[in-house]
């Protein structure tokens, strides 16, 4: 199997999960209601756990141990999509990001549960069950707030328009796309993107939100190759603040 292709896939997925998990965890103590505090920190915990499982596979493929990979790289060595690193902003943006991202992620893990690369297929089979709760949460809240008050609809609409170009960045073409498909490791970003668009349309249609035509949205690429916004490095500095006091120490 093409190891480089698998590693590229694993790195971007794991980095996505870690960074978004980090952002979600910033809601702990600040949610608009306690239930949402708990929901976001639950999802954060799941995501960080998923990233660890993926970094562990990478470790088995000869990469460094998960703590070193996660806590010592710089921003330009991260492959997460830019969508995940953007600040939480207000709840409407966090919710829309959660909806757009987790819809893609649930589909991705569903696809990967059939992967020919067994270690990934095993993790994906487990993770997809957990992600049902994430998408259920996202869909319910988007449907509720996307059809409630003028303010809630307006806020969600604005955040949707802001987030969509970044969301399309999730599917940034991979140089290994054809290898992954050929070896039945993953059906590819293109196939995922198509499935994702359908799901997003389906949920948005049940709200009073308006989805712009796909062809009018210019995807924001770059994250997969380490080109990030100014928001990522401070996040990483914060994440590794204690770890770097003494990287050889056990905490």
């Amino acid at each position: 199997m093409n190891q480089e292709a698998i590693k590229e896939l694993l790195y971007k997925m794991a980095d996505d999960q870690l960074i978004l998990g980090h952002r979600n965890s910033e809601w702990t103590g600040f949610g608009p209601l306690l239930e949402e505090d708990i929901a976001f920190s639950s999802m954060a915990q799941d995501k960080v756990g998923h990233s660890l499982a993926l970094y562990t596979i990478l470790n088995d493929l000869g990469e460094q141990d998960p703590d070193t990979i996660a806590f010592t790289r710089n921003a330009d060595q991260f492959h997460n999509t830019v969508l995940t690193e953007l600040p939480n902003a207000e709840y409407d943006f966090s919710l829309i990001r959660h909806f757009l991202y987790d819809t893609a992620e649930a589909l991705r893990f569903e696809m990967l549960s059939h992967s020919s690369f067994e270690p990934l297929a095993l993790v994906a089979t487990k993770v997809r069950g957990e992600l049902r709760y994430h998408t259920m949460h996202a869909n319910t809240w988007v449907k509720q707030l996307g059809a409630a008050t003028e303010e809630s609809i307006g806020r969600l609409q604005q955040s949707l328009e802001l987030a969509l170009p970044y969301a399309l960045g999730i599917f940034e073409p991979s140089p290994y796309e054809s290898d992954l498909i050929k070896e039945a490791i993953f059906e590819g970003e293109k196939a995922l993107e198509e499935k994702w668009k359908k799901k997003v349309e389906e949920v948005i249609a049940q709200t009073q939100l308006h989805l712009p035509k796909w062809e009018t949205i210019a995807p924001h690429y770059g994250g997969r190759t380490g080109k990030h916004t100014e928001y990522l490095q401070p996040l990483l500095d914060e994440m590794s603040e204690v770890f770097k006091i003494d990287p050889t120490a056990e905490w």
């Binding site: 608009p32 207000e90 509720q144 409630a148 008050t149």
Partner: peptide, 15 residues
């Protein structure tokens, strides 16, 4: 304060 609009929106029973 920042969550007020969310709680208000939830009072409109939709789901």
């Amino acid at each position: 304060e920042r969550g007020r609009w969310v709680r208000e929106a939830l009072r409109t029973p939709k789901t």
